[in-house]
Each structure stands twice: as structure tokens, then as C-alpha cells.
Design a protein around this nucleic acid. Structure first.
Lengths: 109, 109
DNA sequence: TGACAACATGTCAGATCTGACATAACCTTA
DNA sequence: TAAGGTTATGTCAGATCTGACATGTTGTCA
């Protein structure tokens, strides 16, 4: 449990270099779906931030959070929930339609 | 804060009778988007359960939760997070595409 | 009407998440 | 290389969420 958390974590941090989280770690379907979904939301958040030329510290102010929390959000750290990610995107004005797109867009393998 | 929570709560419990959560309570855009999103997920969960002819107690077993928690999920109670709702749907085999559809499908006014 | 199954609501201890702080690692540019 | 701006990682107290239990409500059927 602890070990796997760590693995997930490192994986998400580097993340993008790995084609499939699942086959590498042998996670269950739900687990991998959850993680990959989180990563998509994380990436979307980062994109939005960059498009607006904001630093993590700037965004933290907007979201009433902290720079470190933003950093963790953007790498899909296990300590951040989908809830926080989605709420953050909503605060940034993401529409349901966009959210929907983010969620269904599958990551290139 | 407390008052509003209660209002939201009752509203979500009865919920379906109200056209727009927002204009009734004057919530901010994010707040209402969040609540309405939660309600869509909640409804989707209930639909899935019913399609499978399961009682809330049955579903609780599958999800390793309790009947009362399922009930709260299905009415979008403030005490349940998007995280729990989404994880539950994923456990029930909901695909990204379906999830995406649930999220973007706007509720009839 | 009573009995029963299903669903809703209230509460709470323990689990998990969050903002904040400290600090490290990374990049530019001078 | 030093300084400065940005991002990453570790930690933790307080906030929030969760499963479980108790109890209340609703609907159905005999």
C-alpha cells in the first residue's frame, strides 16, 4: 500500500514518459482509470495556467491555495483529489463541455 | 456558511423540482456548476444501480461502503465529494466516454 | 392495519485532504 | 558563478470526507 503509493507518485511526477500506467504497475482497471483521469485534469490545469502566463504562485492566489499545492495538483500527486482539481478548473471558468472533453480525451500511447 | 450549506442540502435532496439552483440561491458560477455537476453524477449513479436491479444495500457491498453513504451519494449530499462519486462510477465500469457524457449533459430547465 | 423491504437522515470516530511553511531542485541571465 | 524567479518535495495541524451505526420515512402487499 505504501510502496504502491510511492510508485504511483513517482510515476505521476515523471508520468508523461510512460505509455500505460496500468501495464507497468499492474493496477486494477478502476485504479488506472482513476489515475489517468487525474493526470488529464492535472495537465489541463497546467495548460490553462500557462495560457494565461501565470506562475504557480499567481494561480495559488487566484485559487486561494498555495504554490506547493498547485505544483502537486499539476503532477497529479496522490494527495490531491479529483474534487480539488475539478473545482479549480471550474473556478478558472472551464465549462462543462470543456471538462467533458478533458475527461474523455485519451492520452496518446 | 452554515445556513447556505443547509439550503443547498435541502435543495439537493428535493432537487429535481427546481429548475436552476443558481438563480434560486444566488450562488456564484463555480458553486452552481459544482453542485449541478455533482447532481448529474449522482443521478447517473442511481440510474446505473437501478439498471442492475440492485438495492442501495446491494450496491454498498459492491462499493465497500454503506447503504446510508449510497443514499447520500444519490442525492448529491454536501458530505460526498466528486471524488467519491467518480470513483464509484469507475468501479461500476463507467468508461471515460460515458463519464464525459454524464458531465456535459445539461439538465433540462 | 401490520409487517417488511427500500430509502433517507443524523451523528461520529477515524481516515483522507488541504493550505501553509520550509527547503530543495531547476533555469535563465548577468 | 551568483542571484533571482519558478517549480518540486516533505511535513503537519486543521479541515473535510467516509463508513458505519441508529433511527426515521415511505411504499407495498397481505
Amino acid at each position: 500500500m505504501k510502496m504502491r503509493e510511492e510508485k504511483k507518485r513517482r510515476l505521476e511526477a515523471k508520468g508523461w514518459k510512460v505509455a500505460s500506467v496500468k501495464e507497468f504497475l499492474r493496477l486494477s482497471d478502476q485504479e488506472s482509470a482513476y489515475i489517468e483521469l487525474k493526470i488529464r485534469l492535472a495537465e489541463a490545469l497546467r495548460e490553462r495556467r500557462r495560457q494565461n502566463h501565470l506562475s504557480q504562485a499567481d494561480l495559488a492566489k487566484v485559487l486561494k491555495s498555495s504554490q506547493s499545492r498547485i505544483a502537486k495538483m499539476e503532477v497529479g500527486d496522490p494527495s490531491v483529489s479529483l474534487d480539488l482539481l475539478i473545482r479549480s478548473l471550474l473556478v478558472l471558468g472551464t465549462s462543462d463541455r470543456e471538462l467533458s472533453r478533458i475527461i474523455s480525451t485519451s492520452r496518446a500511447a
